[in-house]
């Protein structure tokens, strides 16, 4: 389970970078997020259909990587708190404030960290945006990002093929190929690709056939 000494924890953080690929790209008209489906426990494939994309509200989606229990609990809490924020403010809540809230949750446990890494992306009154958080709560805004053990393979595909200021339809095939490349070369990633797009019309999850078409 969770080791007690700091050195062992450091090793665990390194090891837990393994076992996922997540990709996010901010476009002119929305955001594209994609993940693989493999859930590993060491070298064992524990689940072949894990869900790493989590819908926070109708316009915001997060990707999760790391310790599944921590990630799921934080996401559930965040989702309920977002509803509460909207009621309290009597109005919409920006993607940035959701990401900041998540950052505060993570930092509040700075000395007994939640072992998670999130991408929080959405479409709000300011347009499309995407934020990346590490397990201590560091928050950065990004135009494109990959996380997880498959991230080096995926980022290469993005760097080589993503044009400047892409539209969602420009970015979709590149994102799909990025995750596929990780699956090919990273043992920690596999089993298939999940893709969502977030536009002013809301969140859409692509079907398996639509994803297959992108890779053709």
């Amino acid at each position: 389970m969770l080791p007690q000494e700091l050195d062992e924890r450091k090793v665990l953080y390194e090891k837990l970078k393994h076992g996922t690929t997540t990709v996010g790209v901010v476009c002119t008209d929305g955001v594209v997020l994609a993940t693989d489906r493999r859930v590993t426990s060491g070298t064992y494939v524990a689940h072949k259909r894990g869900r790493k994309l989590f819908m926070l509200d109708e316009m915001r989606v997060a990707t999760i990587a790391g310790l599944v229990a921590d990630a799921q609990m934080i996401m559930d809490f965040l989702k309920s708190q977002i509803s509460l924020m909207k009621l309290t403010n009597r109005g919409p809540v920006t993607t940035r404030s959701i990401a900041t809230f998540a950052s505060n949750i993570l930092f509040s446990s700075r000395y007994y960290p939640y072992i998670v890494q999130f991408i929080i992306a959405g479409y709000d009154e300011k347009g499309p945006s995407m934020y990346v958080l590490d397990w201590f709560g560091s928050l950065t805004e990004e135009r494109f990002i990959t996380t997880g053990s498959g991230s080096p393979y995926a980022i290469g595909v993005l760097e080589a093929n993503l044009k400047k200021n892409p539209s969602v339809s420009d970015a979709l095939p590149v994102v799909a190929r990025a995750v596929r490349s990780s699956i090919e070369r990273d043992p920690g990633s596999g089993e298939g690709i999940d893709i969502v797009t977030i536009t002013e019309r809301g969140v859409t999850e692509l079907s398996d056939t639509e994803v297959a078409k992108l890779l053709a």
Binding site: M1, V39, A46, H47, R49, G50, R51, L67, V68, A69, D70, A71, Q72, M73
Partner: peptide
């Protein structure tokens, strides 16, 4: 559903 010792929940058809 499959739960790990910390309480993560993943639905599956077999485990």
């Amino acid at each position: 559903f499959v739960l790990d010792p910390l309480g993560s929940m993943i639905e599956d058809r077999y485990a």
